[in-house]
């Protein structure tokens, strides 16, 4: 494990100043500590954000939706009965995310910004493309958990359970840096590594995610989250689906379908959602939308089964919204 210095500021401004100077943000540490221990990350300075006031907890302002502080532990969201009433999809997505111990310290911001779980990426001894090497080893290697769609030079998959769920709720994020604040769509935080961009997130140097916002409109939609794993707990998703829609007189409006575990980013295709507008979310409509979502999928040697799985999970998720 490489050595680093550690500071725990109380003020956000201080943390942002340190980040600007090249320090690395530490929240729950459940991902960063393993990255450092395996030599994949080599920070020299860590800024522990967990002492900062005001970035923890969630609140609702009538008409303005929900704001979730980035340092809120996942367990707090999962166990909040109030939030479960407003936004049940969040609890659904967190229920099978990692383990109770990780959810106790893992934060919302950390979950969204976690690095991918590709075993070539995580192995210090493999010089994969994402780490500056020349190729993706999964392409002709062991690929059962890799991407089937949307990959360019790197075939890792977006691992977060929370991200698809929040994207299906049209979430935005507040991004802070010493230069100020900006807002962006959560979906835009995730980028497929490509060309010169050898990373999974669109944050700029010195920025941190301060909060997630879910607009009021999303609270009126039904949502659901389904996740396929090899074992019944404590696995990253092979495939996951977050779906939401407003159901009026048996017809679906404002449909969102986001896949996890199949692409380098939470996978969403506008045409598929559009296709579902006004349908009764019957089997045919759901499967047709799934086909649009997975159009152009090019599975590797071992992961063709993900297409079958994704298709069925999309159908089930959407059907359950109709029901």
């Amino acid at each position: 494990m490489s050595l680093f210095s550690y500071t725990k500021p109380r003020a956000l401004s201080e943390a942002l100043r340190l980040l600007r100077g090249g320090a690395t943000a530490l929240a729950g540490g459940t991902d960063l500590v393993t990255l450092v221990r395996h030599g994949v990350a080599r920070p020299e300075r860590l800024v522990d954000l967990t002492g900062i006031e005001g970035l923890r907890g969630w609140s609702r302002e009538k008409g303005k939706g929900i704001r979730i502080g980035a340092l809120t532990p996942l367990a707090d969201l999962e166990t909040s009965a109030q939030l479960a009433k407003l936004l049940p999809i969040v609890r659904e997505s967190l229920r099978d995310a990692a383990t109770p111990q990780i959810r106790n310290v893992g934060t919302v911001g950390g979950n969204l910004l976690q690095r991918n779980r590709c075993w070539y990426f995580r192995d210090e001894g493999v010089p994969c493309w994402l780490k500056g090497g020349t190729r993706c080893f999964a392409v002709d290697g062991e690929s059962r958990y890799h991407a089937v769609v949307g990959a360019h030079e790197c075939w890792m998959v977006s691992p977060s359970d929370l991200a698809p769920a929040l994207i299906a709720c049209d979430a935005e994020i507040e991004v802070a840096s010493s230069l100020g604040r900006r807002r962006m769509k959560l979906a835009d935080l995730f980028v497929a590594p490509q060309g010169k961009r050898r990373r999974e997130h669109a944050l700029r140097e010195g920025e941190l995610v301060a909060a997630v916002r879910v607009p009021e409109g999303a609270l009126e939609r039904r949502g659901t989250y389904l996740k396929a794993m090899e074992r019944k707990a404590w696995s990253f998703a092979i495939v996951s689906v977050a779906a939401s829609a407003r159901i009026r007189e048996g017809r679906a409006r404002d449909v969102r379908v986001v896949l996890g575990g199949v692409a380098p980013v939470p996978w969403r295709v506008a045409a598929a959602e559009k296709q579902l507008e006004g349908t009764a979310l019957d089997d045919n409509a759901c499967l047709a939308a799934a086909d649009t979502l997975l159009d152009g999928a090019t599975p590797l040697r071992d992961n063709g089964y993900k297409v079958t799985l994704a298709r069925e999970l999309v159908r089930r998720a959407l059907r359950s919204l109709a029901g």
């Binding site: 070539y120 192995d123 290697g141």
Partner: peptide, 10 residues
């Protein structure tokens, strides 16, 4: 799970 090319347990 072993990568055959690398001979590495993944």
């Amino acid at each position: 799970i072993v990568d055959r090319g690398l001979g590495r347990v993944m």
